[in-house]
Design a protein around this nucleic acid. Structure first.
Length: 204
DNA sequence: GGTCGGATCATCT
DNA sequence: GATGATCCGACCG
């Protein structure tokens, strides 16, 4: 691993806590992907918490229950939940809380720090002529840039080829909380977390 | 700067 | 048959 993508791998115990807290503390952590033998990495600058069955915006909301799609949300904390949205894009979540209780953190945006040329190729045709600040500024975009597909569903985020590391904890003041993007229920719950002042988020 | 429609498909009614 | 935890290009101002 090169200099930028340094840090300790976050242990399962990090994820086995209240989802809102995990979402907040993932800001500033680094995702490292070696999918396809190519290393790409980025700093997490935007997340959203989907906190449990009582969260009507969650894929595992009470009215929906346990289904084939959301099965991974019931899995072990620290594993991936990857789903397809609008039949077009993949989105990456980190499963949180306790096994059997459906909750997860959607990774919404990254500041690219490594393998930017690879990201641009994967995001072609638009990727090559895109400002760097828009390369991973959305959940579908970052999944494509890192090479993430449904093959990563249920993958433990502590091992190759996809892991999350962190070398420092951001101060609470460095993180903002706002309503989540794109949801049609619980639209005012402040469960979207961003690195304060970041120019790499999906919205500024 | 903003808004709008199309892509595309698994899941659920 | 309708609905999305989205993205992009077209169009308007």
């Amino acid at each position: 691993m090169s200099g930028a993508a340094r840090g300790r791998v976050l242990p399962a115990a990090f994820y086995a806590r209240p989802t809102e807290q995990v979402a907040r503390e993932l800001i500033g952590a680094v995702i490292v992907s070696e999918i396809g033998g190519q290393q790409t990495a980025g700093i997490i600058v935007e997340t959203e918490a989907y906190v449990g069955p009582h969260d009507p915006a969650s894929h595992a909301a009470e009215r929906i229950g346990r289904t084939l799609r959301n099965e991974a949300m019931f899995g072990r904390p620290g594993t991936a939940y990857v789903y397809r949205i609008y039949g077009v894009h993949w989105c990456l979540n980190a499963v949180t809380d306790r096994t059997g209780y459906p909750a997860a953190v959607l990774i919404r945006a990254l500041e690219p720090i490594e393998g930017i040329d690879v990201m641009q190729q994967r995001r072609a045709p638009v990727g090559s002529h895109l400002p760097e600040s828009r390369l991973c500024s959305g959940p579908g975009k970052l999944a494509e840039a890192l090479g993430i597909t449904g093959a990563m569903d249920r993958h433990p985020l502590r091992h190759r080829p996809l892991r999350i590391v962190r070398d420092r904890v951001l101060a609470d003041l460095a993180v903002t909380a706002t309503p989540r993007i794109g949801v049609t229920r619980a639209i005012d719950w402040p469960l979207r977390f961003c690195m304060r002042g970041s120019r790499w988020t999906s919205r500024r």
